[in-house]
Amino acid sequence: MHLTQLNCECLLHLFSFLDKDSRKSLSLTCRRLREVFLDPRLWSLLHFSSPCQLRRDNYVLGASLRFLTIFWYSSRVQQVCNIEDWLKSSLQKTICSKHERLVSTFLAHVCYMCPNLLSLTLSGCAHITDQDVIAVLKSCRRLRCLRLENCVRITDCVLEGVVAHGTSLEEVQVDFCRNVTQAGLQLVREKRPDVQLGAEMSAGMIPDSLPDERLEIRRTLQKVLQFS
């Protein structure tokens, strides 16, 4: 029996063992396998290990997507992307400009095309904003699990969005997000006690502050030292 003589369910099962690139390559061999590749049922789970993978045409976004993960473990995240914009050199800004909108644009597509998403994990996505995540909460009303790790632009606004729009959320994690505060975490605990909340290191880290804010803090400290 030739591979293409198998029924659709068998082909979908075989495709499920392949990574995205292998699925794409196999789909280019004939029309029958191309149809299997485009079948939304094949794409209930998507995992990306860097934002650059979002540019590839080797996956399908659709209403069948349930679990989405974008991990980016790279020295670039720590040395470039995690730095406050006002401290970045021209070279660092140039590097960021090539990818800073990738994840945000992708999440915008998810909002329109994946209303049945159940779980979203974003790790090391330094350029995503509160509004990117809140847009997902508003569009994907069945979302049960939200995990954010080392996303430096995320603030208490996301936690306010969890309270306002995350009606189906059961678990929320905001680990190593330095601009999340105890006040934001307490809001979720009070308003949504049913949500399992985790925040490793987040509220204990030094938050970002604008240069003028740092100057005011320094002046205040100097006055305190003078009169103490």
Rank of each mutant, 00 (worst) to 15 (best):
G161R: 03
Q226R: 11
R214A: 09
E170P: 00
L91G: 07
V136K: 03
F176R: 02
Q78Y: 12
V162K: 03
D19S: 00
F48W: 04
I154T: 03
S123H: 03
L143G: 01
S89T: 15
L54R: 07
E216N: 13
H127P: 01
R141W: 09
Q131Y: 09
I128Y: 02
S22V: 00
G198D: 05
G161Q: 11
R192T: 05
L11W: 05
D39I: 04
H47V: 14
H99Y: 15
F106G: 06
F176I: 13
L12T: 12
V136C: 05
Q222I: 13
S25F: 03
P115D: 12
Q78D: 15
R153N: 14
H13M: 14
A183P: 00
V80N: 07
L107Y: 00
T105F: 09
A183Y: 08
S202T: 05
Q226V: 10
S75W: 11
C30G: 13
V172P: 00
R178S: 10
C114D: 02
V103Q: 01
V77N: 09
P211E: 14
I206V: 14
F17E: 09
L68Q: 07
L107G: 03
S64H: 12
C114K: 02
G198R: 07
L33V: 09
S50D: 11
D57F: 06
L65A: 08
R141C: 04
L91T: 15
A63C: 09
V36T: 04
G184Q: 09
K93L: 12
P193G: 12
V174P: 02
L107D: 04
V80Y: 00
E213L: 08
S49R: 11
P51R: 02
L120N: 00
L68D: 01
Q53C: 00
W86T: 09
C114A: 10
S75Q: 06
D39Q: 07
D39W: 08
E9G: 01
T105Y: 04
S22G: 05
Q173D: 03
C151S: 02
V103K: 02
H47W: 05
P51M: 12
D130C: 12
Q226W: 04
C10E: 14
S44T: 04
T121R: 04
N150M: 10
Q5V: 13
A135K: 14
H165Q: 04
L197I: 14
N82W: 04
S27W: 06
S228N: 13
G184Y: 09
T181E: 05
